[in-house]
Nucleic acid binder design. Structure first.
Lengths: 118, 118
DNA sequence: TGATCATTCAACCTATCGGTTGACAACGCG
DNA sequence: CGCGTTGTCAACCGATAGGTTGAATGATCA
């Protein structure tokens, strides 16, 4: 799981982390701030933040003894790009090729694009 | 991890599963078709499909002894909605409130949003 | 210098993930 | 019917995720 896209998806697969991200869209926050609403240890929250950071979703600066967490929204584009790309492809298939493929499907259902691949 | 959004993100956090989804945008496929390019057992692929299915990303119909896998692209919208919602919020914060919030942040850095949210 | 707040590191535990192999179920065909 | 094809179920395994507690670090303040 080295690629960033995987990391971003994995990071957002956790409801707690999604909630953190949601709150960070409103304002930067410290670990303590972020931890408050949840019923887990500070260390657990710290770990969640590490995951978000490694996915590139947040960054952290030092400010006195605090380490405010800041959302890096650009990474969202990485996901959106991926999603949109394939959604568009899927939609095209349904609108344009529609009945054509439907016929082919019932016809030689076993056959695949790629065929015997290589 | 009961909610669908979590399941969808988790499902797409795996490169193999993302690749399967990508290929399914081009055409429906059987388990065997899908397994071909990967260097793993059929059972492993079957498991991946189960994950995708439980996330609502694919559906399967029975057709003779085959079980063609079909992409359900609507679920993409669930993600897109979530992402866009918070990305927009984040962008607004940077463009509109920008310096205002920056000042507030340094001021009462410990404080959390909401509160005085004028 | 020492107390204290904010945060992280380290070790540990349990559950889940992604993979394996082996057995089995469902269907179509000779 | 028996056989191959297609796919799943079950048990197992090592690695990782998410949580815990306890100790350590770092910065500020009295």
């Amino acid at each position: 799981m080295t690629d960033q896209l995987s990391k971003v998806f994995a990071a957002l697969a956790d409801p707690t982390r999604r909630d953190m991200v949601a709150r960070l869209t409103r304002a930067d926050a410290t670990v303590n701030d972020l931890a408050a609403p949840y019923d887990v240890s500070l260390q657990a929250v710290s770990k969640h933040l590490k995951v978000l950071e490694e996915a590139g979703l947040v960054s952290r600066t030092r400010e006195a003894q605090r380490r405010p967490v800041h959302l890096e929204a650009e990474v969202f584009d990485l996901m959106t790009k991926w999603i949109e790309r394939y959604r568009r492809q899927a939609e095209e298939r349904f609108s344009r090729l529609d009945s054509v493929l439907a016929a082919m499907d019932t016809d030689n259902a076993t056959q695949q694009q790629e065929g015997t691949a290589s």
